[in-house]
Amino acid sequence: MEKQEFTITLYTENSVGLIGRISGIFSRRKINIESLNTSPSEVEGIHRFTILINETEEVVRKLCRQLEKQIDILKAYFNTDDEIVWQEQALYKVPTKVVTEKVYVERLLRQYGASTVVIREDYIVFETAGHREEIDRLTEELNKYGLIEFVRGARIAIIKSSAGIHEKVLEFEKREPSHEIVENEYLDKRDDVFTM
Score class of each variant (00 low, 15 high):
39 S>F: 07
27 S>G: 10
82 D>F: 03
146 G>I: 01
42 E>M: 01
40 P>L: 03
92 Y>R: 12
27 S>V: 00
38 T>K: 03
140 E>M: 13
114 A>G: 07
133 E>N: 12
49 F>N: 02
1 M>V: 00
18 L>N: 07
128 T>M: 13
30 K>A: 15
76 A>E: 11
26 F>A: 02
133 E>W: 01
183 E>D: 08
130 G>C: 05
70 Q>C: 00
4 Q>I: 03
134 E>P: 03
129 A>G: 10
67 L>I: 10
12 T>L: 09
19 I>T: 10
131 H>C: 02
57 E>H: 07
13 E>W: 02
193 V>N: 11
69 K>M: 05
39 S>L: 05
74 L>V: 14
102 K>Y: 03
39 S>E: 10
10 L>W: 03
10 L>R: 03
132 R>N: 14
46 I>Y: 13
114 A>T: 01
66 Q>I: 07
114 A>K: 04
83 E>M: 08
74 L>P: 08
58 E>F: 03
57 E>G: 12
154 A>L: 00
110 R>Y: 14
149 E>L: 02
169 V>N: 01
115 S>M: 06
136 D>Y: 08
98 V>K: 11
88 E>A: 01
10 L>Y: 04
17 G>L: 07
12 T>I: 09
160 K>S: 14
157 A>E: 06
112 Y>M: 05
161 S>C: 01
123 Y>W: 06
20 G>Y: 11
142 L>R: 08
121 E>H: 09
91 L>P: 02
65 R>T: 09
145 Y>H: 15
73 I>P: 09
69 K>Q: 11
99 V>P: 02
40 P>S: 08
131 H>R: 15
147 L>N: 13
74 L>T: 10
172 F>E: 13
5 E>N: 09
30 K>I: 01
130 G>W: 04
65 R>F: 08
133 E>D: 14
43 V>F: 13
18 L>A: 05
140 E>Q: 15
161 S>M: 01
45 G>R: 02
173 E>A: 05
162 S>N: 09
102 K>A: 02
98 V>C: 02
84 I>L: 12
80 T>L: 06
118 V>R: 11
81 D>A: 09
164 G>S: 10
187 L>S: 02
115 S>F: 08
162 S>F: 04
165 I>F: 06
45 G>C: 02
16 V>T: 12
194 F>Q: 00
81 D>S: 09
21 R>F: 00
6 F>E: 14
61 R>Y: 15
84 I>S: 11
138 L>W: 09
99 V>E: 04
195 T>F: 00
134 E>Q: 15
73 I>R: 06
167 E>A: 10
194 F>N: 00
191 D>Q: 03
47 H>I: 01
127 E>S: 15
169 V>W: 01
126 F>P: 14
114 A>Y: 04
18 L>K: 04
9 T>V: 08
141 E>T: 00
103 V>D: 12
64 C>G: 07
14 N>C: 04
38 T>G: 04
191 D>L: 05
76 A>W: 11
117 V>M: 14
74 L>G: 10
150 F>P: 05
138 L>G: 13
31 I>A: 04
41 S>F: 10
149 E>C: 05
148 I>L: 15
183 E>F: 08
35 S>H: 02
26 F>Y: 06
2 E>T: 11
163 A>S: 10
142 L>P: 08
88 E>N: 06
148 I>Q: 15
157 A>C: 02
45 G>M: 02
63 L>T: 09
69 K>S: 06
22 I>D: 14
